[in-house]
């Protein structure tokens, strides 16, 4: 017992440092977003300063940022919706009716993730150019649907497997048809885990960068692309503005942290117990 004590304290110190590493750089970016340029470009870090909202006012006042925000919301929302529409029924069917093909379907859905994004983006650029749909929300939504559908199927299967079979059998005895069982029994019972799965696919699409970079030039640019372009405003890097746009871009995924943490708990419990 005596020998263990110091080891535990060392472990606690290391964990504390890891927690600081997780938080401090982000917190620093957050603070810098409220600083004037003179407080950022300093030889030593400044912790006490007069906060300003100028950076956020500038960022939110730019038309490109507002347009990027609208594009990101529409594109992410629509592709997550399409992902749910196609993905959830399939996940349910695969979870409930295991067959010879189940393993193959799961592998096929996962293998879509093996495709390097460049490999998809280059031909898609040519396809959308030829179709006259290059740089539109529609082309991005279609492209992202591959991502959202496969993610929803992959994460939805374990969620539906956790629904007790007995409940569904009882519903069948009560005269529910197979579709009614899906809509009125399985879907509501699994809804908490399913929301986690959908949140996950939202975060994936919201954060996506390479495909959006290649498939848009002006009209359909999403927020990550707009944010990345702010660095190229010449030699005099507008640090405050850049920090503010990074914070703005990161807020929506961080709002889901609670949902995703709960989702993680339920998935892990399933796979190991």
């Amino acid at each position: 017992m005596n020998r263990v004590r110091p080891a535990i304290w060392i472990a606690r110190v290391i964990l504390g440092l890891a927690a600081a590493m997780a938080i401090v750089p982000v917190l620093w970016t957050f603070l810098n977003a409220f600083k004037n340029r003179v407080d950022i470009v300093t030889p030593a870090p400044v912790f006490i300063f007069t906060p300003t909202l100028d950076n956020f006012i500038y960022v939110l006042g730019r038309e490109s940022v507002l347009q990027g925000l609208i594009n990101s919301v529409i594109v992410s929302g629509a592709s997550v919706l399409i992902g749910a529409l196609f993905g959830l029924p399939t996940a349910y069917a695969v979870a409930r009716h295991p067959s010879r093909l189940t393993g193959e379907i799961q592998f096929f859905v996962l293998s879509l993730r093996f495709l390097p994004p460049v490999a998809v983006a280059i031909p898609l650029m040519v396809i959308w150019l030829d179709a006259g749909l290059y740089d539109t929300q529609l082309s991005l939504i279609t492209t992202y649907s591959l991502l959202t559908i496969s993610t929803t199927v992959w994460l939805g299967i374990p969620a539906f497997q956790r629904v007790p079979k007995e409940v569904e059998e009882a519903a069948t005895v009560d005269g529910y048809g197979p579709y009614a069982v899906f809509f009125k029994v399985a879907l509501p019972i699994a809804s908490r885990s399913l929301i986690g799965a959908l949140a996950f696919s939202f975060v994936l699409v919201w954060n996506e960068f390479l495909i959006a970079l290649m498939l848009t030039t002006s009209d359909a640019k999403t927020l990550p692309i707009v944010a990345s372009e702010l660095t190229q405003l010449g030699r005099d890097v507008p640090w405050g503005i850049l920090n503010a746009s990074v914070i703005l871009l990161s807020l929506p995924p961080l709002l889901f942290i609670g949902v995703l943490s709960g989702f993680l708990n339920s998935i892990v419990k399933k796979t190991n117990g």
Partner: peptide, 11 residues
Amino acid sequence: FLMPVLLPRVS
């Protein structure tokens, strides 16, 4: 510990 992975890679 979950926070960093949720950040967009660009951020």
